[in-house]
Amino acid sequence: MKIKAADIVVIVLLFISVFFIKNLFTPSGAPSLVLVTENGEKNIPFHNHLYDLREETGHAMILEVKDGRARIKESDCPAQICVLTGWVSACGDAAVCIPNKVAVYVRCEDDDKGLDAISR
């Protein structure tokens, strides 16, 4: 019993699809930037700004908002996944730090009607 060529092809395709899976779950619509901490959720304006999250989260973390994008610039968590995630800007994008229980994500209005835009 040996691995077959088709196996390799399928595995490669599966790994590629990893990047698109998220899109299955993420709605689109008017976006807002949300900071999630243990204390709950907080909306953050898209204005360019550096936020020191020490008070909010009890951890040495820095959130940067710039040009309509946001990222965790620095964090004291071991794996640094949230920092490595880099910029988040599209609907459903999120930088999550599980050990510190902190997440920054772009929430969009539920888009079950399949709308491309909202006029308001």
Partner: peptide
């Protein structure tokens, strides 16, 4: 998906999905 609708109810968790999906694969 199940954790998202039953327990966490925050789309933020899907931000982690790519990492978990890669390791899980």
């Amino acid at each position: 998906f199940m954790a998202g609708i039953l327990y966490i109810q925050s789309p933020a968790i899907y931000g982690l999905l790519p990492y978990f999906a890669a390791v899980s694969t």
